[in-house]
Design a protein around this nucleic acid. Structure first.
Lengths: 145, 145
DNA sequence: CTATGTGCAAATCTTTTGCAGGCTA
DNA sequence: TAGCCTGCAAAAGATTTGCACATAG
């Protein structure tokens, strides 16, 4: 019921390192492993700190929870991840940094991409005086039914 | 720098009571005061628990912070307020319960209404199999510039 | 070698909850 | 009177931080 992660392998580790380089983030053992889990297979993912921590543990990598938090923050600061706020209780991080719409499944608390080709914002207001639009978050909340 | 609240007066208190009745919420002293602050003058507001707590204190009403939290929750359950999730650190509550777009001012952490006449979602994806769309949150994040 | 990252535990912050006493219907 | 409400303090969760040790460049 949660996001799958890329397996740890030479190939995904390699992909993770490339990704870290792109963000100019110093590649430590822990960061390489987390990066491999996140983007090693080229899939987009939406993860929570706890979820990534569990995945790392399950892969046999020892990474502390605090480091997972710090690392997710560092990846965001480097522009490698995007933080998505859909639930007051917990932060989600998206490996796709482009602005795009999401589905949030209220029953399972799962966040997924909505097909962006099917969401069209026809008009946006002008940014008020002295401000500019940094991002437009669109979250489609789904309930079973 | 934060949302203004309606003053406490016989008129706003009266309006607050009417609002509570509409939600079939038992009118206690504390709830009446909070309702008056929130909707006594008919304006729409976006508040945090802490902000409302401070406003109550400043108005000379003694309400505990726990009660503010419980009351906001009760108002939401009654359909009188809408919870808006824009910031992982804190919940916002909107006195307007209709689905409408918001501006979120990143510098001041302030949440305001975006002119809904100027936001138009032209197309929405179908809800995936077995789900229905409960709500579509649109948050336009503003940064100074 | 120096700056930066890591791990652990403790600290923070928001929100919820347990319980005893108060108040509404 | 019965049941819901309030206040306080404590609990609960998520996230951050301080500090000593480890490691990348």
């Amino acid at each position: 019921m949660e996001t799958q992660f890329a397996p740890l392998s030479p190939a995904t580790t390699q992909a993770g390192q490339t990704w870290l380089n792109r963000g100019k983030v110093r590649p430590t053992r822990q960061r390489i492993a987390l990066a491999a889990l996140l983007v090693g297979d080229g899939e987009n993912r939406h993860v929570t700190a706890e979820g990534l921590f569990t995945a790392a543990k399950d892969s046999g990598e020892s990474v502390s929870l605090a480091t997972v938090y710090n690392t997710l923050r560092a990846f965001c600061d480097a522009g490698l991840l995007n933080e998505i706020t859909v639930d007051a209780a917990r932060s989600y991080f998206d490996t796709c940094v482009e602005d795009h719409p999401h589905f949030f499944w209220e029953e399972t608390q799962e966040l997924t991409d909505a097909p962006s080709s099917e969401v069209e914002i026809a008009r946006l207001p002008d940014a008020p005086e002295g401000a500019r639009i940094a991002r437009v978050d669109v979250v489609i909340r789904l309930r079973r039914g």
